[in-house]
Amino acid sequence: MTPPPTLPATTTRRHAYWQAVLTLGVLVAVVCLARRHWTVLASGAGRLAVADQGWLLVAGTAALGTWVSSAVAQQGAVPQRLPGGRLVAVQLAASAANHVLPAGLGAGAVNLRFLMRCGLPVGRSASALAVKATAGVVVRAVLIGVLAVACPGVLRAPRVSVGVVGVVLAALVLVTVLLNCPLWPRCRRALATVLTDIRAVHARPQRAAALWGGSLAFAALHSLVLICVTEAVELPLSPARVALLYLAASSAAALLPTPGGIGSLDAALVFALTASGTTAAAAASVVLGYRLLTVWLPLIPGLLVLGVLVRRKDL
């Protein structure tokens, strides 16, 4: 049997090179902005240092729950039973790897390797990740829609210019061209595999409940972390408004492929909070607190867990 064609090594290296260049460029821009607004950041850090410790403890507990909910969602995307303890540990390791590699590739690579170690073929493993990602996107879109109705006026529809219309038309033309290219049959087969796995998951109510419940809990717990930090620094914003701002900002930041959304998510959150009337120093304190609990404190333990899983050949 002839092996399936693969991308040339030069093409793979070129893609990795441009991803690394883009990530480095974004990080340099973040450092420059941080240096320019150092006074605001220092003021925000000072405000966070005297914040309510009780609310920060609740935020930390919610941050821990995000790994459990991610594990539940991943289990829901796979028909067979996965080892629960190792699955949660993999989510912690994946979150750490996700903040090291460009474009958020770390989490996908770690979960893909774990599913393959659990006996799933590479195609089914990739399909399970796609099912989980699709559920996460749908849940976020529904939450944004519900919260936008509950908090009218927070999100404003952008003005559509002639340039935007031109970009949309160009994208439609590009999609039409791609549908006729030789790669489309392969993409169609991959999409058919994902749809087959979605039907297989929803044929088992427990798996479907885990997939959607875990995805909902993951988005809700991340929102809760930000809500608790805003309460800790005594920002006069309602929980529903903060959750809507987080979901909208994180969805927008996902369009820029930086490790763990570093730089893009921070800027989007600061912009969303200041647009709601929050001072720059208060917004900086909230973002610093959120990042501290979800990224910087778990980073070293996550990397250690990643090393242990690799040594034990679970990855």
Score class of each variant (00 low, 15 high):
A42R: 12
P121S: 06
G108T: 03
A283S: 07
T274S: 04
T39M: 08
L211T: 00
Y290I: 05
L87W: 00
A248W: 04
W38E: 10
V167A: 12
N98T: 01
L115V: 07
V131E: 06
G106K: 11
P102L: 08
P3W: 12
L105K: 07
L226R: 00
C151E: 13
A267L: 13
G302V: 01
G261H: 03
L221W: 00
W296T: 10
L211H: 05
A34E: 11
G84Q: 15
T23F: 15
L120D: 00
T39S: 14
L304G: 09
Q53L: 10
M1N: 15
H15F: 08
A9G: 15
V165R: 14
L92P: 06
V225R: 00
V233S: 01
L303T: 01
V26Q: 03
A190G: 11
V233N: 03
A248N: 02
L288F: 12
L56F: 04
V162N: 09
T230Q: 02
R47P: 06
A89C: 00
W67N: 09
C187P: 12
L297D: 14
A63L: 02
L315N: 14
V72F: 11
V30F: 04
L226S: 00
A200N: 06
L48N: 03
G307L: 07
P236Y: 04
A62L: 07
A254L: 08
V160W: 09
L115R: 06
P121E: 05
V194N: 08
P182K: 06
T193Y: 03
V21Q: 12
Q206T: 13
R311D: 13
T196H: 14
A107W: 02
V142Y: 00
R81K: 04
S238R: 08
A192E: 05
P301T: 10
V295A: 09
G76E: 06
L178K: 13
L101T: 01
L155T: 12
A283R: 05
Q19V: 09
P301E: 05
R36E: 12
V68P: 05
G123K: 00
A240N: 03
P257I: 15
A190F: 09
G46K: 07
P301C: 00
P121R: 01
A208H: 10
V50Y: 04
L315G: 08
